[in-house]
Simulated scan of single mutants.
Amino acid sequence: MTPQLTDNYMVTIAERLKSAYARIAIATKKYHRNEHDVCLLAVSKTKPADFILAAYQQGHREFGESYVQEAVDKITQLANYSDIVWHFIGPIQSNKTAAVAENFDWVQSVDREKIAKRLNDQRPINKAPLKVLIQVNISLEDSKSGCHPDDLAALAQFVNDSPNLVLRGLMAIPAKTDDPQQQIQYFEQLRACFDRLKAQYPHIDTLSMGMSGDVEAAIAAGSTMVRIGTDIFGQRS
């Protein structure tokens, strides 16, 4: 375990977490959404296990990680906190799929059949099926991970047919912009993909979109999960 946090820093995380929840509550009220329909995923990548524990002590349970070995180390350190729900949200390399399949509850960044197949084949039989979000490259950026929207239907069918995976919805990281209307436009495109997919798979329920800079736009467009890191844990070191 990393050195213990000072009391002041634990208070800071508690205050920031409270502020993040309040931000969601304000946005959901503004856009006539139920605040309980939007989950806050605390993105803890690059932060030590003690930071996660500080948020846990405030009642938070959902945490997102992007770097496999760093995440596995923290999951191991916090193994006694069995009600933590771990989400993998980063790009997935083929040689890392076993560690992801063995340690996480959710994977939000499945973008191709090869990765889905490896996760399915490597999921331990003593664990519940892995909850999967398909990452969509909604702004069609060459530098971004995610499947092309045209490939979404085939990938969703593959995930849905995989016995050790459960298709739960979609995730995206759109092109960065400070223009709220452009933010909403990207999110509405993903929402349209989600709605079409839900017509075929009525059980899907998760639309993971929105981060610290665009939470309000994401909630306006129908996000059910927002991913917030810096506003809770501070700048990355």
Rank of each mutant, 00 (worst) to 15 (best):
T2K: 00
P3W: 03
T6D: 08
T12P: 01
A14Y: 04
A20Q: 04
A20H: 05
R23G: 10
R23I: 00
I24G: 01
A25V: 01
A25R: 02
A25Q: 05
A27F: 06
A27H: 01
Y31N: 08
H32G: 12
N34L: 11
E35R: 14
H36R: 12
H36T: 14
V38Q: 09
V38L: 13
L40T: 12
L41V: 12
L41F: 09
K45D: 10
K45H: 08
K47C: 09
P48S: 15
A49C: 15
A49P: 15
F51K: 09
I52N: 05
L53W: 10
H60W: 15
E62P: 01
E62R: 08
F63Y: 14
S66M: 08
S66Q: 13
Y67A: 12
V68N: 11
V68R: 08
Q69L: 14
D73N: 12
T76S: 11
Q77C: 12
N80S: 15
Y81D: 09
S82I: 10
S82D: 14
I84V: 08
W86P: 08
H87K: 03
F88P: 02
F88S: 06
G90D: 07
G90W: 07
S94C: 00
N95H: 13
T97F: 01
A98Y: 01
A98W: 04
A99V: 02
A101K: 10
E102M: 06
E102F: 01
F104H: 01
W106K: 02
V107R: 01
V107C: 08
E113V: 04
K114H: 05
K117A: 07
N120D: 09
D121S: 03
Q122R: 12
P124N: 02
I125E: 02
N126G: 01
N126F: 03
K131N: 09
V132P: 01
L133N: 06
V136Q: 03
L140Y: 13
L140E: 10
L140C: 09
L140G: 03
E141R: 02
E141I: 04
S143C: 07
C147G: 13
H148C: 12
H148M: 13
D151H: 10
L152E: 11
L152T: 15
A153T: 14
A153V: 14
L155K: 11
A156E: 09
A156Y: 13
Q157D: 15
Q157C: 15
N160R: 04
N160C: 05
D161K: 06
D161L: 08
S162N: 13
L167T: 03
G169M: 02
I173T: 01
K176W: 10
K176P: 00
T177W: 05
P180L: 11
Q181E: 14
Q182W: 04
Q182F: 07
Q183H: 10
Q183K: 13
Q185R: 05
Y186I: 13
F187R: 12
E188F: 03
L190K: 08
R191Y: 15
A192D: 15
C193L: 06
F194P: 05
D195R: 11
R196K: 13
A199L: 09
Y201E: 06
Y201G: 03
P202M: 06
I204V: 10
I204S: 07
T206Y: 02
G210C: 04
M211N: 05
M211W: 07
S212G: 06
D214Y: 10
E216Q: 09
G222E: 07
T224D: 07
T224V: 09
T230P: 10
D231A: 11
I232R: 05
I232F: 03
I232M: 06
G234M: 12
R236K: 13
